[in-house]
Design a protein around this nucleic acid. Sequence first.
RNA 1: GCGGGUGUGGCGGAAUUGGCAGACGCGCUAGACUUAGGAUCUAGUGUCACGCACGUGCAGGUUCAAGUCCUGUCACCCGCACCA
Length: 800
Amino acid sequence: MKYDFKAIEEKWQKVWEEKQAFVASEDYSKPKFYGLVEFPYPSGSGMHVGHIKAYSGLEVISRKRRMQGYNVLFPMGFDAYGLPTENSAIKFNTHPRILTDRNIAKFTSQLKRVGFSFDWTKVIDTTEEDYYKWTQWIFLKLFEHGLVFRDQALVNYCPSCKVVLSNEDSQGGKCDICHSDIIQKSKDVWYLRITEYADKLLQGLDGVEYPENIKMQQVNWIGKSTGAFVDFSIKEVDESLRVYTTRCDTLFGVTFMVIAPEHPIIEKYRDKISNIDALDTYKEECAKKTEFERTQLVKDKTGVKIEGLTAVNPVNGKEIPVYISDYVMMGYGTGAIMAVPAHDQRDYDFAKKFGIDIIEVIKGGDISVEAYTGDGEMVNSDFLNGIEKKADAIEKMLGFLGEKGIGEKGVQYKMKDWAFNRQRYWGEPIPIVHCAKCGMVPVPYEELPLKLPNVENFEPGEGGESPLAKIDSFVNCKCPKCGGDARRETDTMPQWAGSSWYFLRYIDPKNDKVFADKEKLNYWLPVDWYNGGMEHVTRHLIYSRFWHKFLYDIGEVPTAEPYAKRSAQGLILGPDGQKMSKSRGNVVDPNDVVNEYGADTLRVYILFMGDYGMAAPWSESSMRGCKRFLDRVAELPSMIKGEGATPALESLFHKTLKKVTLDIEDMKFNTAIAAMMTLLNAIYDNGSLTRDELKMLVQMLSPFAPHLCEEIWEQLGGEGLCSLSAWPQYDETKTVDSTVEIVVQINGKLKSRLNVKADISAADAISAAKADEKIAAEIAGKAIIKEIYVPKKLVNIVAK
RNA sequence: GCGGGUGUGGCGGAAUUGGCAGACGCGCUAGACUUAGGAUCUAGUGUCACGCACGUGCAGGUUCAAGUCCUGUCACCCGCACCA
């Protein structure tokens, strides 16, 4: 058969669409499979082979599940709000709505050309009113339950994008979008109280099937630590300074305190501080430093002593100085620390620089050289002296602190509340009204969606104001509560909002009464398998777990966790082994590949490249190998002889089917394809195969190369669509060989090979081995110490 | 610094979890068919001192047997990072 991939692919894509072959059914009596892939951000540059890899894994699994009789939901949509579109809107002076629609159309046609079996009747677009209505609805629910608050805070601000970013979006002190340096700016910010869910997010990990590295990343991100809060009184004023410490066992070694430059106690007692000017100067310098500069100066500690405030160590009454330094962060703990230079390297560096006492309280190190952070016997510590175990010392100290009312056990998280607003146009409007009389008033549910107004100018304001602030008709409104004049909130939600619940909307995308029907949620949740990139592990994956858990707590969804299982694909690197990027010019466009080699080749190659979870470089010549494989498959119909099974091939067919069936479940697509290549080579060596065998082969290949397989299936007179035919069953008994080749070793070295019956006894195998000429010669005159038989593998004779 | 991961032919990668290292593919070599080949077919292809010799980043160890387990070490990649 001539393999005209272009004609074949167009033909079958049309048939699948007409027959609605991959539409999830409403038949809830069938077992379900909900396979989810991270929906793309429809950027102007179109798709990337990385997108194809990200979707191909669950594409194969979903296609197999359908053939295995599951009711499969495998949806696709577009996460279309976000800065890149808005930036190109400004650049090309084109409305983001127009750009978004254009980009979605482009993505859709590219996805369809690859032949993905998405349920296209359930496509969602996060920027459509009937979608973001429910994003706003969830926001209001969060508001209603006290999980939304507004605070004047130092925020990560990108001076180039003119936008406030969350911690997650400014990792490493760089803007996630434009990579400019982030500066700290004081602003009114909307927060979602994700920290309220820190423990639930942590505990929930126990019950889900995520790879260990993903769990670890989330655990580290949440960063739970247990320690103690301790109050240090200030001598000059009636005030105490609270610190958080994980090492309250070292309290007797405290020789000074450090507070963050922004700590409010400085403002509160300005008039008591004699060197306030020096503190102000230092504070200004810190605000100017970029994150990068701060981390560069880890070893070089800076700070200023506060003259006029002296702290008192609560365990021994010693008076100690208080410093400000930028090595203490306002955003973690209490913004103040007790410094124990003998047992904390940072405090040690600081003490050395400022000539502060260093008192050893744990034996074991040499504090004239560096801080000692290990375990050891407690000294110089009054009632703790002599204790050897850290845990015991902490326990005893906690008891003491509790008794005296100067401290208590405490828990801290690295995770911070989620800064949930952007001063930008292309996002969901935050449905809140500011009323002089009533304060923050939520827009009533029945008025949702609060529509994003159509504007002409999307440039953000110079002061970091949203473009919406310039639209009077949007801003000026009546307070829903008192009816008086009020102003609308003009910030929009961050790009992560829409993706935090999209998997729920796929279940019932057209519902205009609720975000999704309860019965449908009950049937489809949780997502059985979610595949996506590692870059979303500490953002989208945590955010969406948070929203889902909240919805669960208020009774809106039936499961505590959204995703039962998560996997992650590895990157596709450029042919040069570098990460693909436009600037390097090593990006491969899937459209070009589909044009030149066909979608089936692209799909097979992407899954054959290597381990699905690992990065692998693109190689066009390797891809040609996959094309050759499919070319040879396309020739098979001309090699058919008869029906039933070919004796020489039967066992290999069942072995291959077994391997493919099992490997797909482990996402070991590369070895599944390799096994089918091996089978194909054997068929060619044999010169023929039967009609039934070819049917079986195209069925097992069809999740990978569905177009070609449909074509052959049709030629063979297969019933219905190959994509919806019943997954073939392998016969276990036919996968085992009656005779096997075993290896004979002397002292673990390979010396000979034997063919034996598979079920041969150990004694028979060993005597057969000894009867072998080479072996007999080897062991002649030697004492046999041990004889080992590993069934179907080898005989090893230990001889001296 | 902390956490996670990876080191196997010229290249991408296999190896049922301790049992024949290098499956499968690429590339390469030779030949066939060709006016031609980024086509197809056939054979070969880890290394060399061609021995059942040596070989899985390096050095040890456990074992009848180690890519796989243990100890140490080096290199690279990815997260987080002055987290108190």
